[in-house]
Amino acid sequence: MECGVHHANHYYGHSAVLARYCGLDDEAPRIQGYLQHGWNIGDGLAPDHEFVPGVPKFLWSERVRRRAWSLGRRDVYVVGAPWAYLLALEPAAPAEREGTIWYPFHGWEGQHVLGSHDNLIAEIKATEPGPVTVCLYWQEYRDKAVRATYEKAGFRVICHGYRGGWWKDLDPGFLYRQLAELRRHSRVASNRLCSAVFYGTLAGCAPAVYGDPMQLENEKSAFGGQARILREWSDMIGAEVDLETARRVAVAELGADRLLPPAELRRLFGWPAPRSTAAIELTGVLTS
């Protein structure tokens, strides 16, 4: 029997990464549960999700699990972020790193960012010592004016792709492209603490969070919003942060210390065993 599953499980090719870790070649296998798809200061789940009792929620970190529990969520399980699994699958080759990859805060479909891209560009230029790659969310990347603004500033402008939705235009290559880009840069930065900053930190970049946080139109401060992020995750905020601390925080937030063995993950997600299980049985411990 297949179980109800949310289309968000396939955002950014998350389910595809986990399927590969589990030795399966399905790009969008059904997960018997809801998978956290972004770094989250609340219960790990998107506010628009509709929950069915008894369908498990798979979260990235123990911290989020405790918070979700305190908010009345049950059937919550820590599995770690797909990103951490991707790093376990793709060990870094020694490579030259140069410059900064900068993720201007984006809205989601239907949201609109308020704020000046020009001010942000000036601040980036004043702070970053090396070449800058700006990575835009697909929505802003498609906006020629926004793209041109950053290009005119002399930045390389890229987009990792469309995250996919409702099983259409799924992009299992999303995270791979992001990883390849992050590994080319020595710094990762954004105007808001977000998944990309943690991803970059775990992938070996020095993180930085500074600049106008660019409010969303009618932004709601769920779970304390920006103000709480600045208080609780102050170790990650600033143009220069302590690397060791940042890495420790990233490991904890992405659950990189809590990866499951493939057999356990398959069991939890209701996935079949692969035809051959010999070579891919990792221990679930990230050593890099």
Binding site: L260, P261, P262, A263, E264, L265, R266, R267, L268, A273, T277, E281, T283
Partner: peptide
């Protein structure tokens, strides 16, 4: 039991 076996890497 199946899940706990999974925790040890066993299918």
């Amino acid at each position: 039991t199946a899940l706990i076996a999974g925790m040890t890497g066993r299918e």
